[in-house]
Write a protein that binds this DNA or RNA. Structure first.
Length: 723
RNA sequence: GCGCCCGUAGCUCAGCUGGAUAGAGCGUCAGACUCCGGAUCUGAAGGCCGCGCGUUCGAAUCGCGCCGGGCGCACCA
């Protein structure tokens, strides 16, 4: 019995009353929750704006509505307040009973598929805290959509053929041996030996346990050395072009061992590197980093359904097909002259959003015949929407192979990869490969979780879908844009102190309110590193509270829950279009408006029931016992919490509609805050009046249940047994 | 130059489709349980909601114009 149901019924009653009393139809009636409970549980301010149309005083209108309306049974009474507000008061006892006996889980899934694409980390180095914002927002969206009854498919796009992966390979093959050895953390040696070391660090299969000494951490050190080299030595860039060409050509099904052997032999003999071997190494680097990223995200209980690979998009000619569709639709043209001569461009002049631009043409195919990133993205988006069709009308699709299986013990438990569980598929360049019982893409709605700096290309992609004659699909293509995560100067100084290295930022940069992270320059806070710091801090706090002799595994589990709670709440509570200036002190806080504060409220409430069971043999209020509460008086402060608990569904819907999870975070915080206040004035165990005790138990039962749903299911924040 | 975002308490931020007295947290100061865990609670101080004009019964919220800050506008990915 969520509040939204009562709301709808009351809206219908008012709409009907307006027609009956004034013959007024077509009014958008909307109810709000008043700022104070003495002003009612729901309110309608609509009599005020109607005064002009109906040429009557607002209070008069309100009175007539009250007179004519047939209110739903949940409404106890209606009052007119102030200039003409209509305040509705609910039957508290019966409402509480219905809330307790109703279901609280997700709605049954129906309707078309919704694709959410998130994470999308370049597979060339470890994830940093900026990637965490993407993953947390994306995963929270997935959770909310699922809760609201959508079929959700989670995609994590892997750019395995880009410059960034190539740069790591350039580092291995061409960086001076001393540099390479330093990045590897070994004594300088011959390159063929160093390559052996590098390859031995690759996680080959499965998903490793995340740490800060993984392969992706090695790349984190290696990559900035390569980009620095490009700046020092302009000739070095030639290596990048070579590697990119090799990657584009592909490696067939070359065995990695064989490829490594070929590369090592080439070093010894001084011959050029064989292209296929280079391509194979690049593929191995991308895959290894991907596995490390999956491990990092698993800690936060984030998982995926399918991993579309850019290499497969290229191999399977997605762009060629998209190009044909665009050309047939007349959406693109070959530029004969001017600065874009020889390029295929899409004109955006007809769409209002782009009309004001200096150059409303977007190049999709370069004059050298290669496709731009945006071009590939258009093809990918069409596939996601099920609109990339071949001439015979069949879908132009990937092949698929199982990549891994994953499981998690609860909605906010860590993800574990293993032999069984939910399927994680990856795309394959062999379109004849299928996984029985599984299909991907073809969604009715697509959310691309990508930071705000990608807004322009995302708009182009959307426009391409539109000009292909799919306006509905274009409208159903949503760019979930969010601002970047940056570092406060204080955070930068702390990192420099800890690593003993300077990022070489000048005074001007350090005087700004934040410093942008940069993988290319190695400026950033690695996700696993930060999670480790958070966990260590949480563990210290747990030990302090639980005393000696605590089981180590139990301590670790609690610490993990607190660390994840702190992190996910931090990411969810800030409005998405505001730069998140990361500060260690703030991020490591466990008091106040933080994840642990929310967790603590749920733990504390659960503790009441544990003690109740021990001492009085009483449990949560459910079923028949709940029915007794029908006639019970519910005081204002307890009622406040009950009403707040009833709002979950509409808050979730609002959060999804606005893509603003700060609403959900704030809702959760409000619940916890109400509970903590009540905790001090509404003791349960000590209360001797059985009726009153039952009421308090009932409200707290509702609260505990609600917190588990909001925190674990929606926000992915675990609720530990104790903390 | 054009477009988007941000500007709310000393600091970090909420404030959803315009609604009733603008809210949290941190920090500061003063307090609370012989207790169901103080990762808590109570109270105080602290606001021309960047500025101006407009729309409206009503504006932090909508429109226009300024000011300040950030980000986009590649044959980069």
């Amino acid at each position: 019995m969520p509040l939204s149901a009562v709301r709808e019924a009351a809206v219908a009653a008012i709409t009907a009353a307006l027609e009956e009393a004034f013959g007024h139809t077509g009014e958008e009636v909307s109810l709000e929750v008043p700022p104070r409970r003495d002003l009612g549980d729901l309110a309608w301010p609509g009599a005020l704006p109607l005064a002009r149309t109906l040429r009557k005083a607002p209070r008069q209108i309100a009175e007539a509505v009250v007179e004519a309306a047939r209110w739903p049974e949940e409404v106890e009474r209606v009052e007119i307040a102030g200039p003409g507000f209509l305040n509705l008061y609910l039957h508290r006892g019966p409402f509480l009973v219905r809330l307790l006996s109703g279901p609280s889980g997700p709605l049954e899934a129906s309707g078309s598929r919704v694709v959410v694409e998130h994470t999308n980390i370049n597979p060339n180095k470890a994830a940093h805290i900026g990637h965490l914002r993407n993953a947390v927002l994306g995963d929270t969206l997935v959770r909310c959509l699922t809760h609201l009854g959508h079929h959700v498919e989670v995609q994590n796009y892997i750019d395995d053929t880009g410059v960034q992966v190539a740069d790591v390979v350039v580092g291995v093959l061409h960086l001076p041996e001393t540099e390479l050895a330093a990045a590897l953390g070994v004594e300088p040696g011959r390159r063929d030996e160093l390559i052996g070391t590098f390859v031995s660090r690759l996680p080959r299969e499965g998903v490793p346990t995340a740490s800060t000494t993984d392969f992706d951490d090695l790349c984190w050190d290696l990559y900035p050395r390569v980009t620095a080299r490009y700046e020092e030595d302009p000739g070095f860039a030639a290596h990048r072009a070579e590697v990119l060409h090799a990657v584009e050509a592909g490696h067939g099904e070359l065995d990695l061992e064989e490829a490594v052997f070929t590369l090592e032999r080439a070093i010894v003999s001084g011959e050029p590197f064989a292209r296929r071997a280079v391509a194979r190494l690049a593929a191995a680097v991308a895959d290894a980093n991907l596995r490390c990223h999956l491990a990092t995200m698993a800690r936060l209980s984030v998982a995926y359904d399918v991993l579309p690979h850019e290499s497969d998009i290229l191999q399977l000619g997605f762009w060629q097909r998209a190009f044909e569709l665009l050309r047939e639709a007349g959406a693109i043209r070959l530029e004969e002259s001017g600065k874009n001569a020889g390029c295929w461009v899409m004109s955006l002049a007809d769409s209002p959003e782009f009309a004001e631009m200096d150059d409303p043409d977007k190049i999709l195919v370069r004059s050298n015949g290669t496709v731009t990133y945006t071009g590939k993205d258009i093809a990918y988006q069409l596939w996601k929407l099920g609109l990339l069709t071949d001439e015979d009308g069949t879908l132009h699709d990937f092949g698929y192979t199982p990549y891994a299986h994953w499981d998690r013990e609860g909605p906010a438990a860590p993800v574990t990869y293993g032999a069984s569980g939910q399927l994680l598929a990856r795309t394959s360049s062999d379109p004849s490969r299928h996984i029985p019982g599984h299909s991907f893409g073809g969604a009715g709605r697509v959310y691309n979780v990508i930071d705000v700096r990608q807004s322009y290309p995302q708009k182009v992609v959307r426009e391409a879908v539109r000009v292909l004659g799919h306006p509905e699909a274009a409208d159903a293509s949503v760019h979930f844009a969010y601002e970047m995560v940056a570092l406060t100067p204080a955070a930068v100084r702390l990192i420099e102190e800890r690593t003993g290295e300077s990022f070489g930022l000048d005074e001007e940069a350090m005087s700004k309110s934040y410093v942008e992270m940069s993988g290319r320059r190695g400026i950033g806070v690695k996700a696993d590193e930060f999670l480790d710091v958070l966990t260590a801090q949480a563990e210290a706090a747990v030990r302090e509270r639980s005393g000696e002799g605590m089981d180590g595994a139990e301590t670790a589990s609690r610490a993990r829950a607190i660390a994840v709670g702190a992190l996910r709440y931090l990411m969810a509570k800030q409005s998405r279009n505001r730069v998140l200036a990361f500060d260690f002190d703030e991020a490591l806080a466990f008091e106040g408006d933080t994840g642990p504060y929310l967790q603590y409220s749920a733990v504390r409430a659960a503790k009441i029931f544990a003690r109740l069971a021990e001492r009085l043999g009483e449990g949560m209020v459910e079923g028949d016992e709940a029915a007794h509460l029908r006639e019970t008086e519910v005081p204002d402060d307890l009622w406040e919490l009950v009403l707040a608990c009833a709002r979950r569904r509409e808050v979730t819907a609002q959060a999804v509609a606005s893509l603003e999870f700060s609403l959900l975070a704030q809702h959760a915080h409000g619940l916890a805050q109400l509970f903590h206040k009540l905790y001090h004035v509404h003791p349960v165990l000590r209360e001797e009046d059985a009726t009153l005790r039952r009421l308090r138990r009932a409200v707290f039962t509702l609260f505990v249940r609600e917190m588990h749903v909001v925190l674990e299911e929606l926000l992915g924040i675990p609720v530990p047994e104790e903390m």
